[in-house]
Every structure is written in structure tokens, then in C-alpha cells.
Amino acid sequence: MRGVIFRGLEELVVEAIGMQAWDELLEAHAPEGRVYVSPTSYPDAELFALAQGVADKLNKPLTDVLAIFGQSLFGFLAEKHKGISSKFASFEELVLSIDSVIHMEVKKLYDEPNLPSIAAIVKDDKTIVLEYCSNRKLCFCAEGLLYGAAQFYSRKLKIEHPQCMHSGAKHCVLILHLD
């Protein structure tokens, strides 16, 4: 997993529960002396262990933590890559461009072979059906990112998750209901 995602988690933890908590998480779940920087890749297991550590500290289920993290991560990434986020005039435009524009921009910057594949279909002016597929199975984080994006565009969003990779499906189906 790219360092930029770890940096997003670091930002969230430091802001929400403090610098000391982040230090403790690093002590417990990362190799000694680890400093996360965006362009470097780190083991996926490290991210999951840190996220689980956050869940343990907050006494919340991991899925909830991933959702919160996703939401916060969107703001972090949008701030860090203003050039990209400013390209989209609306939430819908952004969602429909995840694979063709956003992931393409990620590939320009990082050699990232494990990007999720995301297909989005507009059902009507208030519904988008999104298919998420990734060997990392971070669908809850994806949900969080979508909530973060909705917040960024001041939209109210509800997500249904009727089909999930965690239940054995080949891909997750997320139905996005907009206000």
C-alpha cells in the first residue's frame, strides 16, 4: 500500500486521538523507526494492523474505523492533490471518473499495481451503482471515501452495500443514493 494512505491515517489519528496515540500505534504495529512517506510502498498488513490498533483504542469495530478513515482520507487526498480534485465539478462526475481519471493520475505518480477496479453506472439522477473489486477488500474504506467525497461536494449520501466480497462475492456492489 502506498505511503500516502498511511499518511492519511497518521493525519486522522493525530488529529482525532493525538500524537502520542499514533506513536504508540507505530511502536506496536510498525517496524522500528518507521516514517511514512507518500511515494513509498509499505506492506498492506502494516496498514491493517494500524487500523485494527485504532479500532482497539477506540473500542469500535474495524469496519467502522475503516469507514471513518475513508471519509477523512478523501479530505486529506483532495487537499494534497488540489489539481486533481478541482477537475470535477460534481460528486457524480468524480465518481464516474474514478477509474479513468483518478486511478490514471495515481499511476502517473506511483507504480501501483494493486489499484481497485471500480465501475460506475448512473441509474437515474439520484442513484449510481458502483462495482468495487480489489484483492485488498477495502470496501468499507471505499464507502468512507465516497462519504468524504459527498461531504466535499456538500451532498447528502446514503450507501447500500447489498453484495460484498467479504461474503464471498467476486465484487462488491454499492448503491449510492443522493439527495
Binding site: 500516502v4 499518511r7 500524537m19 516514517v35 512517506v37 507518500s38 511515494p39 494534497k80 502517473k108 505518480l109
Partner: peptide
Amino acid sequence: AYLRERRARDEVESLLEEKTR
């Protein structure tokens, strides 16, 4: 000191991304 170090990382990363692009 931590925030200063984090800003330094941000600046270096931003520079690196610009060059990478």
C-alpha cells in the same frame, strides 16, 4: 516539532510529485 517535520515531508512529497508528473 512533529508538525514541522510533517510539513517538511509534505513539501518534499509535493516537490517529488511535481517532478514525477
